[in-house]
Design a protein around this nucleic acid. Structure first.
Lengths: 198, 198
DNA sequence: TTATCAAATCAACATTGTGTTCAGTGAAGG
DNA sequence: CCTTCACTGAACACAATGTTGATTTGATAA
């Protein structure tokens, strides 16, 4: 634990950036405090004035991003059964999620990537999955069965996050937020058609 | 590297089991060779006769499971556009995947879980995603556009794996393989309906 | 200008896990 | 009976950890 109350914000930020860079480079397990200090250009002792260990940095970073994600998702328009029937309304939370992730792309790319954290991925799914499910259950009573609801949420949230992960992998300049939304419309429409023919 | 050629198979197995148990308990990063040896009830030196470090164990375990998964998935009936039109045919690879994962539930639960490996998860998605996509592109020319195909595969494979992860979490006695398949039919039918009303 | 104080530095320390080596043990099989 | 071989146990140098205490830096404000 740190003894000091107020500390240089930029040092913490430097540590977090070094952390993101190092995890991408060697994977979380191979990150050492020694190397973090070197990359962040601080003394190893200074690290311990801010964090107790590398797990502490990881948690701080995840907390920061999850709160940011909540903030974005919460600012959707209030729920309304009639409005929800419009696709744009149903996907309001989804648009927010894409925007937020694009805003913090390097951190999300790391945490959702091959060297990232499964528990973080799970939490991200929960956050926007529950918001989408809230809207779905307004227009479909079937989506209110708790057992089914749970799997439905896992299904939809995983599908969307899977596409987002692919998008982050490619380097996110490839597609804009609007194109991502259009892509999802196309994917869902495609699936609907396939199902229709069977 | 190990010096010996033939070694006791049970010792390697004991190490792998200890590894699965330890990763679930403390997470991969906190697993130590010292503890693995203790849990597996072998001398620490003996560990190094079989593996060079804990990463080596992780890779061995992943290889073993990925090859097993390939084996299951490959044994599907040959592709045929007419047959593929039947839902059961389209989901042949999917049924194989569920069966294989259920067969090796403890290892998959660990590797696909919150303490698991994102890169392993990615590889599993690729294996069964590509098989499903092969079948889909037989009946839908749209699924042949490489750019779209890539995202479609991520979308479908992630959705299915999301449900499987949920199923593993709950303890897999909860649903049988047949019920899992039925659940997926229901999920896809549900989505089709929702899309239809928009 | 100078005194102050928080933040960062630097060196030293005990501790813990690593990976390697090597002499020894004990059971199975020719 | 004696060889073989997986495994044991103890010792080793090495590297990263987390902590401590003394010291330097630099911004602020009296």
């Amino acid at each position: 634990m740190s003894v000091h109350e107020k500390m240089n914000f930029e040092t913490k930020q430097a540590i977090k950036n070094a952390f993101i860079q190092q995890v991408e480079e060697v994977g979380f397990e191979r990150v050492t405090v020694k190397n973090l200090a070197f990359v962040a250009e601080i003394n190893r002792g200074t690290f311990y004035l801010h964090y107790s260990d590398k797990y502490d940095v990881m948690e701080d970073l995840q907390q920061e991003l999850l709160m940011e994600l909540e903030r974005y998702v919460k600012h959707v328009q209030p729920l309304d059964a009639f409005q929800t029937l419009k696709m744009g309304q149903l996907y309001q939370p989804f648009i927010k999620v894409i925007t937020c992730i694009k805003e913090h792309a390097p951190a999300f790319r790391m945490l959702l990537g091959e060297q990232g954290s499964p528990s973080f991925t799970q939490k991200v799914k929960m956050i926007f999955g529950s918001h989408i499910l809230d809207r779905l259950s307004l227009i479909r009573k079937e989506a209110q069965d708790p057992e089914f609801q749970q799997y439905l949420q896992a299904f939809i949230a995983s599908a969307i996050l899977g596409v987002i992960q692919e998008w982050l992998d490619k380097g996110n300049e490839n597609l804009t937020v609007e194109e991502m939304v259009a892509l999802h419309f196309r994917l869902i429409r495609f699936l609907g058609n396939v199902i229709g023919t069977i």
